Computed example of a mutant assay.
Amino acid sequence: MEKLRPQRLGHLVLAVRDIHASVKFYTEIMGLQVSDWISDQMVFLRAGTDHHDLALSQIPKDSPDINDLPRYTRPGMEHFSYLVEDRAEMDRTAEVLQAHGVEIVRGIGKHGPGENLFLVFKDPDGNNVEVYCEMTQITPESNYRPKVWERNIDSFDQYRFKHFVVPPPQAVIDAKTNKKS
């Protein structure tokens, strides 16, 4: 059977208890730069030219500190990612995953912040793994200015699920229709 063809480790998304304390730590102590925010619920940080190599996601303030995969209401990793070459490789990746019976969680989509294409799937332990491509590059010459995206479908998937190979997550559908699950 065919295998995936990752080029390199990409970014990591962490769920955090206090996003503002975490941003202060990662910018003032680690030296990362803010690329963008989604409301006050998610922030994208970079050390190099990729739009983000670390993203932080605010967990609900009332979340218990338990191991609760896959709801991600405790601090820790939400997903890590690998870069693939292009959209054609992303499509091939979805086919390979399906042929191997791997659970696909979300995608193929296009995020707002970073403009990258994404496909997220589960490893054998239930960890979210993402492959992505076409991420915005930020150089000193680009004069990039961070912005705050609304927390809506466009920040999650600019394609609006048109290219998803699985049904979109219920939480995203509920947010789109302003319903609570």
Rank of each mutant, 00 (worst) to 15 (best):
D50K: 09
P167H: 02
Y26T: 02
K24Q: 14
Y72F: 15
H163L: 12
K162Y: 10
R151V: 08
L83Q: 13
T27I: 09
M135I: 11
P167Q: 13
H111K: 11
D40G: 12
M1G: 14
P140V: 09
I29F: 12
Y144H: 15
K110H: 02
D157I: 00
T136N: 07
H100P: 02
E85P: 01
P146C: 01
D65M: 13
K179M: 06
R87W: 13
Q98K: 15
S181N: 12
V16A: 05
L69T: 10
V23A: 04
K3D: 08
E150S: 10
N143E: 13
E28K: 14
D53P: 03
P70Y: 09
P60N: 14
I29T: 15
V148T: 15
E89T: 15
I108H: 05
R151Y: 11
K61D: 13
A171W: 14
Y159A: 10
H79Q: 10
V165Y: 01
L119Y: 02
R151E: 12
W149D: 02
P169N: 03
D154V: 06
A21Q: 14
S181W: 10
A15F: 03
V148A: 05
R92E: 11
D36T: 04
T27M: 07
P124E: 06
F156E: 03
F164R: 03
L32K: 08
S35F: 04
F121M: 01
Y26N: 01
A99Y: 05
R17L: 11
V96K: 09
I66W: 05
M90K: 03
F118T: 05
H51D: 06
A88T: 12
R46Y: 04
I29C: 12
W37E: 08
D91E: 14
P70E: 12
R92T: 10
R151N: 14
F164K: 07
K24E: 15
Q7C: 00
R151G: 00
S155E: 07
S81Y: 03
V102N: 01
I104F: 06
N67M: 11
M1Q: 12
I19P: 02
A88P: 00
H100R: 14
Y132I: 10
V105F: 12
G101L: 07
T177C: 05
S35V: 07
R160S: 06
S39G: 15
F25E: 08
V166P: 00
S57C: 10
G101D: 06
L32V: 05
Q158N: 09
F164A: 04
Q170Y: 01
K122L: 14
H52E: 00
R74Q: 13
E85C: 10
D65Q: 13
A21F: 02
G48L: 11
V129I: 15
S22Q: 13
V34Y: 08
K162G: 06
Y82F: 15
A99W: 07
K162H: 13
Y159F: 14
F44P: 00
E134G: 10
H52F: 07
V166Y: 00
D65E: 13
T139E: 12
Y26G: 02
M135K: 08
G10F: 01
D123E: 03
D50N: 11
S57N: 10
S142Q: 08
S22H: 08
I173F: 06
R74W: 06
R17A: 14
D154M: 07
D40Q: 14
Q41R: 15
E2I: 05
Q7V: 04
F121I: 11
L97P: 03
E115K: 12
